[in-house]
C-alpha cells in the first residue's frame, strides 16, 4: 500500500516537472508570427520605421496598410500615442517629427505636437 503512494508521488513529481518545463522553461515557440505578436518594444520600433518610410516616400496608403498589421482598432491614435511618448522619452527631433507628421496625416494631432507641424515661417 505504501509503495502505491510512493509511485503516485513520483508520478505527480514527473507531471509537475513536465508542466513547469513546458510552460515556463521552454514554452512553445511560435513561428510565422504576425506584427501584432511583436513585443511592445519592437512594435514601437515598427511604428517608428513606418513613419520614417512615410517621410521618405509620402505614401500614406502604404503606411496605413503597414500599421493595420498591428491589428489595433485606430492606427491614428496609436501613432499619436507613440509620438507623444517620444516627446517625453528623449527621442530625437527627427523621430518626433516623423511620428507627428504621420499621425497628422492619419488625422490625429495634439497641441504638444503642433510645433512639429507648423509650416509657416515666423519672426523670431
Amino acid at each position: 500500500m505504501r509503495q502505491i503512494w510512493v509511485i503516485a508521488l513520483v508520478f505527480l513529481l514527473g507531471l509537475s516537472l513536465g508542466l513547469v518545463y513546458a510552460w515556463r522553461i521552454k514554452p512553445v515557440e511560435y513561428t510565422d508570427n504576425e506584427f501584432a505578436d511583436l513585443k511592445p518594444t519592437y512594435q514601437a520600433e515598427y511604428v517608428l520605421m513606418v513613419s520614417d518610410a512615410y517621410a521618405l516616400s509620402g505614401n500614406l496608403d502604404a503606411a496605413r496598410e503597414r500599421l493595420s498589421r498591428l491589428a489595433v482598432p485606430d492606427v491614428a491614435t496609436l501613432v499619436l500615442s507613440y509620438a507623444e511618448s517620444a516627446l517625453t522619452q528623449g527621442a530625437t527631433e527627427i523621430e518626433i517629427d516623423h511620428l507627428a507628421h504621420l499621425a497628422a496625416a492619419l488625422g490625429a494631432s495634439s497641441p504638444a505636437l503642433s510645433p512639429y507641424l507648423t509650416p509657416t515661417p515666423t519672426v523670431p
Partner: peptide, 21 residues
Amino acid sequence: GLSLGLTYAWLIDPDEYYETD
C-alpha cells in the same frame, strides 16, 4: 508523469500569452 506533463503543456494547452521577436 513527465510525458503527460510535457504533452499537456506543449500540445494540449500551450501557454497562450506570448510576445515575439
